[in-house]
């Protein structure tokens, strides 16, 4: 078994691999934060059915949902410097070609989340029965008040399970970023493997870390959902 998998090497390699976990978490945090903001924007625009914009957004959502994330990342990586390179150089003095690849990764994920979360939010908001808004108006609340105080809280409850599943998905999708040269869990495992000639232990370590952390995230969201709905949890 020595040639296949060595517990010793595994124990040696594990701390090194997990030390790159913050890279993945960093990506998840910023992408989800900005992605959620974008998604709210997208959802609201779609809900108001603004003529041309809705159509364009529909196209954008279809593209983000229908193409692989890796391809999107590569398009961002190669395309953004080409398209915006001169603009950024002249206006801000920033050379886009020198940017850390992780930025392009995050841009791709943010755009992705704008589409996916946008649809989740839109679905959650439309799932709140119209009678709820009508009740709000009937007691004299304005449209904005009704939306913020009546619709949004109920939509929030509906959206949370799906948001959780999506977030875990984003975490798992960070497994792609090493292809752009980012040194994350897998990136670290690969470099260790290249240096030492043994890659299995590194990959196993990465796999276990992904599984364990995903379960952790899942459990956390189950707790959040339980708290929100006073004991009842809907499994998504």
């Amino acid at each position: 078994m020595e040639n296949y998998f060595s517990i010793e090497r595994f124990i040696h390699v594990f701390p090194k691999v997990i030390s790159s976990l913050p890279v993945n978490l960093h990506i998840v945090f910023w992408s989800m934060l900005l992605g959620t903001l974008l998604a709210v924007f997208v959802a609201v625009l779609r809900l108001h059915r603004v003529p041309v914009v809705s159509g364009l957004l529909g196209l954008y959502i279809s593209f983000m949902r229908g193409t692989p994330l890796l391809v999107q990342m590569m398009i961002a990586f190669y395309g953004i410097p080409i398209v915006l390179g001169t603009v950024f150089l002249n206006l801000f003095g920033i050379n886009l070609n020198r940017l850390e690849p992780v930025i392009f990764v995050e841009i791709a994920i943010i755009l992705n989340e704008g589409a996916f979360l946008g649809e989740i939010f839109r679905g959650a908001i439309t799932s709140v029965p119209a009678v709820q808004s009508e009740a709000g108006y009937s007691i004299g609340m304005t449209g904005a008040q009704t939306f913020v105080r009546i619709v949004l809280p109920q939509a929030f409850k509906v959206a949370i399970p799906h948001y959780g599943v999506d977030l875990i998905g984003v975490f798992q999708n960070t497994s792609l970023v090493f292809m752009l040269g980012v040194v994350d869990l897998l990136g670290r495992a690969k470099t260790i493997g290249a240096a030492s000639g043994h890659t299995i232990e590194g990959y196993v370590a990465a796999a276990l870390i992904y599984i364990a952390f995903s379960l952790l995230l899942k459990g956390t969201f189950l707790l959040i959902e339980k708290k929100l709905s006073g004991g009842e949890v809907k499994l998504v």
Binding site: L176, L186, I200, A206, A207, Y210, I211, F213
Partner: peptide, 17 residues
């Protein structure tokens, strides 16, 4: 547990095995 394993990690791992 398995749903926590990203496809990319699985592909690389099984490939090396």
């Amino acid at each position: 547990a398995y749903l926590g394993l990203p496809t990319m990690v699985a592909i690389l791992l099984y490939n090396i095995i």
